[in-house]
Design a protein around this nucleic acid. Sequence first.
DNA 1: TTACACAATGTTATATTATAACAATTAACA
DNA 2: TGTTAATTGTTATAATATAACATTGTGTAA
Lengths: 132, 132
Amino acid sequence: MLKQETLSKNQRIVLDFIEKVNEPIKAYSILHNVQKKGIKAPLQVYRALDKLVEIGKIHKIESRNAFVACKNSNCQISKATAFSICESCEEVSEISDSKLSKYLKNFQDKAGMKFNKYNLEFFGLCKKCSIK
Amino acid sequence: MLKQETLSKNQRIVLDFIEKVNEPIKAYSILHNVQKKGIKAPLQVYRALDKLVEIGKIHKIESRNAFVACKNSNCQISKATAFSICESCEEVSEISDSKLSKYLKNFQDKAGMKFNKYNLEFFGLCKKCSIK
DNA sequence: TTACACAATGTTATATTATAACAATTAACA
DNA sequence: TGTTAATTGTTATAATATAACATTGTGTAA
């Protein structure tokens, strides 16, 4: 097996749930919600999450220790991710901006390091929260 | 007291250690290393870390749960941070690139969200590791 | 100087996030 | 069909971080 076409049972259960809630969710909250499907232990969730991140089906919001489904065809296999995060209501959106991703993909640092991946998190107030 | 000019005792101890090691270090590793200075509990370390992050003396490397001293006068009070991370040796450098920071500070997302902060982490292989 | 407010400290306990280790089973495919 | 890798199941534990509460220190203004 070189590349997996189909998801395994646990991967499917976890992904279905993450896609359903449609917002960032934490590993133990996933666990709590999929126990009725037969997933009993944290490790079962974390293993599914690891694989789903690896194949780009979900992303981890590092500053929140939360996971969200990918809605963006531009982030090839989770190699180039950008999010906006509202510091008031915690709403998170994946940013899909080809200029931004092009700029960052081509960014070359002064030490000559070659990047194959980046993650960018913007913080601020979303529209709703800024008028409150 | 509106703005603190001087660091408190624990803040000083923690910052001195982080500056001395000069690479990202984890909270419990800091704790272990400053116990001889009288800091006994995780919370004492975390409280110092929180304050030091807030005033921009250190940054948190979110993907590594580690903290590093700020060497960059451009990231005003931790509001605009960028790092390069070697996935092989885990070396982390703070990126100081005025074009990049200007680009990101002015970035406007499509939802009209106003950002006041960002954190960017690039991943790849540093020079040393890429020739191995 | 005193009194007030806020910042920082000390301490114990606990919550939250994540992985180690090992045995068993399943799936791809040469 | 045998072999290899992926996945699963399970228990225990490691690593990261915060709650709660009592106390002490510090700047400032009446």
